[in-house]
Design a binder for these strands. Structure first.
Lengths: 216, 216
DNA sequence: AATCCCCTCCACCTGACGATTGACTGCCTC
DNA sequence: GAGGCAGTCAATCGTCAGGTGGAGGGGATT
């Protein structure tokens, strides 16, 4: 193997998974793990230090979200290449990651071969989106974006608030809340608030973790 | 190290994670990975073959759920010891796993030291439940169980069905649906169907995956 | 300036939801 | 066989949610 190895940075907060990735990749010819990071901030530091060819990154990270890391790094280094690796596939995350400049999106359930093939593909300058995910993206297309205010209302709905409570929380009238709800129901393609809530969770518009506890 | 190693079976469907676990454990003195399985059925086969001291097992598995594997194996081999390892911590899963006879419950975000310490603790015959999870269990206590029918109704609620639709689906009158809803709202400690839906998802009473698509 | 979109609000109306009370059946357990 | 629990259903009632249509102000774009 006279040729150079693909230099990979692994960003993943779960120790076990990170260890697994590193162990897997280090035995592959032509791939070399040059660094590891367990959170978003460290990821940026490691990137600047090692300038990897490929960065394998989880989206849910402590300190700084994966999407933000991608965006930030790509501002400094536009030719940098990211492969997003995540457990759950909320549509919203996929969309935002690709928007931010990720070249590929893989689920942690993939096979080793898939992972390696994807790394090679992306290193060759191409993109790789699994069919299942491509389909979800396609479905998302044509779906209108929620406005910031509609998002606020949706978040409160998921929290189980009534229209009156939402009005108080956001300091607007109940009539306005109804207007937003009417609008967001249409955009989400659902007919009532319960469907809106589950759709929001499923698509990752409102992350589940954000529900545990208060609105500061 | 003249003493015998702790013999561990690793059951986990995500290749990367399984690889990570094996790689981690195999470098530890006194622990030996004797087998691996990627689904529930294989897990049972492997258990019978290797008779491990400790089985590390994920709850969400193809072909047969982790909880069922634990139950099944413990019927044949009551002295077998299980450590449950999972990504997300739906209260319901924790509860059922411990009911089924698991001795410990760990999140995949744990440190290597935690994992090893837990294996040793469990091998010594003790149990190990992290404080955060113990608290969630405590909160769950005092919560009444849902009846099968209430569960059916709750599932439909999460699917976004109206009372009338639920009545049709379950072939009962709308009045009965209301009765069940009233009852389950009380048991879940919530005041309306939207809160019931999010609570059901959060606690893992109704798994998110079950929402993608139909009721056969 | 004209247009578009977002946010805000009002009024009205209908149907759905949730609370309450009560009642009948079947099953299991004691 | 008495009690308890789950499941079924009914009637009533107040409230809330969602649909419709309209309206005004402000910011951005063109």
């Amino acid at each position: 193997m006279g040729q150079e190895s693909i230099r990979v940075l692994v960003v993943e907060d779960h120790h076990v998974v990170r260890q697994g990735l590193v162990a897997l990749l280090n035995v592959v010819d032509g791939i070399e793990v040059v660094g590891e990071a367990a959170d978003g901030v460290e990821a940026i530091t490691q990137f600047r230090k090692h300038r990897p060819d490929i960065t394998l990154i989880d989206l849910r990270l402590p300190r700084m979200a994966g999407v933000d890391v991608i965006q930030r790094v790509r501002m400094e280094t536009p030719q940098s290449r990211f492969i997003v690796l995540t457990t759950y596939d909320g549509d919203e995350d996929i969309y935002r990651a690709l928007q931010a400049g990720a070249r590929a999106y893989l689920l942690k359930g993939m096979t080793t071969d898939e992972l390696i093939a994807t790394i090679r593909t992306v290193h060759a300058g191409k993109s790789h989106i699994p069919p299942a995910i491509a389909q979800r993206l396609a479905e998302r297309m044509g779906t209108e974006e929620l406005t910031p205010r509609e998002f606020d209302v949706l978040e409160q709905i998921v929290r189980g608030k009534s229209n009156k409570e939402i009005a108080t929380e956001l300091e607007i009238s109940e009539a306005t809340v109804k207007t937003h709800i009417n609008s967001l129901l249409g955009k989400l393609g659902v007919t009532d608030r319960t469907q809106a809530a589950t759709a929001a969770i499923q698509r990752g518009i409102v992350p589940l973790e954000s529900l545990r506890k208060p609105t500061p």
